[in-house]
Amino acid sequence: MGPEEAVDTAIDEACRALHLPTIRRRIQEMTADAMRQRSSYKDFLAHLLEAECAEREERRKQRLVRDANFP
């Protein structure tokens, strides 16, 4: 296993432990975008966290509607 695979594995394990499914699923795509745009580390981190928060909010809304048992 090379250094890049080791980093990918560490990120995957940390995302599992911290329950960050969106970051875990989208990290490769978002990393590539950040490299193309030459984003700073802070910008990259902000985008990762915004994506996680947005998806959690969407799942929360879906769960509330499902739990409401509307006719």
Rank of each mutant, 00 (worst) to 15 (best):
L49F: 08
L64A: 12
A10E: 10
P21C: 07
T22W: 01
C53W: 06
R60K: 05
K42V: 15
M30Y: 06
R38S: 12
P21Y: 09
H47K: 10
P3L: 10
L45Q: 09
L20S: 00
A54S: 04
R25V: 11
T22S: 05
D43Q: 06
F70V: 14
K42S: 11
E4H: 15
E50V: 12
P21S: 07
A46M: 08
R26P: 00
A14W: 02
Q28P: 05
R16E: 08
D33R: 08
E13Y: 05
V65D: 04
E58M: 11
R16N: 12
R38D: 12
E57K: 07
I11Q: 01
P21E: 05
Y41S: 06
A32N: 10
A51S: 15
R63E: 15
E52A: 04
S39F: 02
S40F: 01
E52K: 01
R38Y: 11
T9G: 04
E55R: 04
D33M: 05
L45D: 04
M35L: 13
R56C: 08
R59Q: 14
L49K: 03
D8S: 09
C15N: 09
A6K: 13
R26M: 09
I23S: 02
R59W: 05
A17N: 08
E13L: 13
H19D: 13
E55Y: 03
D43M: 04
I23H: 01
F70R: 11
R63W: 09
D33G: 03
Q28V: 14
C15R: 01
R16F: 07
P3T: 14
L49G: 00
I27D: 03
E57I: 03
M35P: 00
